[in-house]
Design a protein around this nucleic acid. Sequence first.
DNA 1: GGCGGGACCATTTTT
DNA 2: TGGTCCCGCC
Length: 619
Amino acid sequence: MISVFQLNESQRQAVEWGEKSLLVLAGPGSGKTAVLTMRIANIIKNSPDENFRILGLTFTVKAAKEMKDRINMLLGNMDNRVQLRTFHAFCTDLLRQHGSHLNLKPDFSVITDEKDRIAILKELDVDNPEDILSRIDTMFTHGISVEELPKYFTPENQTECYDLQTIFNQYIQALSKENQLDFGSMLYFTRQLLETKPRIARQLRTVYKYICVDEFQDTNLAQYLILKLLAPTENANLFIVADEDQIIFQWNGADPKRLESLKSDYNIEVLQLPYNYRCQKEIVEIANKLIEHNSYRIHTKKPGIPFSDESGTVKLTSYENFDHELSGLVDEINVIPLKSRDKCLLIARSNKLLTAANKYLNEHSINAEIVSKNQDFSSPILLTMYFCLKLANAANSRSVLNKLCASATDINGLVLSAEDISAKAHVEGSSLLRAFFDTASQSEILNPVCNAGISYLCDTIQFQKFIEIYINHFDYLNTDDEKDDLFPDYKDDKENWTRIAQDIEDTYEGNVGLHVFLQEMDLTPKLKSIGKDCVRLQTVHSAKGMEFDHVFIIGLAEEQFPTYFAIRSGNKSIEEERRNCFVAITRASKSLYLSYANEYFGWHKQPSRFLKEMGLLND
DNA sequence: GGCGGGACCATTTTT
DNA sequence: TGGTCCCGCC
């Protein structure tokens, strides 16, 4: 942990920043999280008698959690004046409190499954729901209202525009009627709330005197508009941390232009954290050279400066074809001792190359695993418990019942029909969940948890008690003998469950309703445990924010990295690819192994232009 | 047996 | 944008 005394000059300036807005340009490894959290802690410590709060907004759950942990270390139990949330979690908090103005009930649930969104559109008799959904998402991420929509259509396409307007309105109505929100609508409703109820916005402004935003470059327009409603004047106290060279979510609405808007909308000062504490100097040098080729940059940003004098390694190797490249990779990894394998990261631009590399490495006795965040639980046991809770929260949802029946059927093969259970509930005038428990109790393995379910989810709501009994039951069955095969993924799922449940406990201090509990469960990514002495394989996007001693990047060839798509669609996309490459190489602290082949899957490819730009290859 | 023409393949994924 | 393979036709 860095203390105030170890800060460099620009870091200290940022930490001690008080009133007015500041934009902190923070490259890879510049210590931005330390700066952000220490500045927050400073303000709180220097105002013990005041009761304003500080709002910290992040883009990812992981970043919010990281900041929470650090703030907790710095402030201990004084941290109740600091609210650290992702944009989306902040919006749900707000909508649970004030959503009644928009006819939203406080116990709404969160849709995370694309299929459920498609299902809503199908109910509305939409022709090609996938296409319409992506249009609706574009409206959401760009904050485009129904009224503004005609601007985006040519005069001869106005019918198409009118159709989309109608469907968008119907979709919004369906969400509020079914008491469900998806990610996009959270932002949509929040903006509407703050625009139509200026009193609420004003109240928030009084409470949150300071607002910090981490990874600002990732915000889409809808999020930025919400920020502007929270801090409408140019004299606001915004503290924005951003790196324009790491915008790699453009396809999701992030845009280099956002920083320009920020600078013109606010009377903002700019400060750069120039030192790179992560990467050794050879790596910083090629990263600087590479990113210089991007033209959409704030011109005041200076190249990164390596903090350490120590020498790192940058090695480029070329191969005849992809097979040779993989074989060369095996040789390189074999040099690294087993105990350091968990400090190795293999990056590829696409999952196709990553999958092939994974297969090859494992066939050549190198432990390797593709690391990707899986959004959902995967073991039937945990899923069944989770859907029981969901059905307790959304009592009439047929789609939840369908999923519950499917997962419960997977546990032991006793077929549970959603159709029959629904009919039974109708005849008996009971809830879907009660009818489910009545039916499923015929299964020997499920019987004890069904009884618990009736007592603690139907007769009374004591969902924590239900969870406890449910998990104990399967823990008992699981330790009975070697039944790992019988309960696939149960261990990983349970670890995730207990971890998230603990986080929720910490955040809400044990005082949490079922809908909020489920919301946090839904919005928190589930991690996969990784084997011993294992090399991690990740795509560029999923590796963002991480750091490893040794990084291997394969497939540095034209039409792989940069991708074929980017090359075809022009300079704006190439610049995003360049930022992707920048993010990839700056994951490495000590050594960086780059490689390309002349042939992939039978197609001849040129070496990536980025290698030339980094000065590693001549024209 | 030699040829012309068409098919083949092409990204990332948070909230 | 590529190279290669296979099919059908002459």
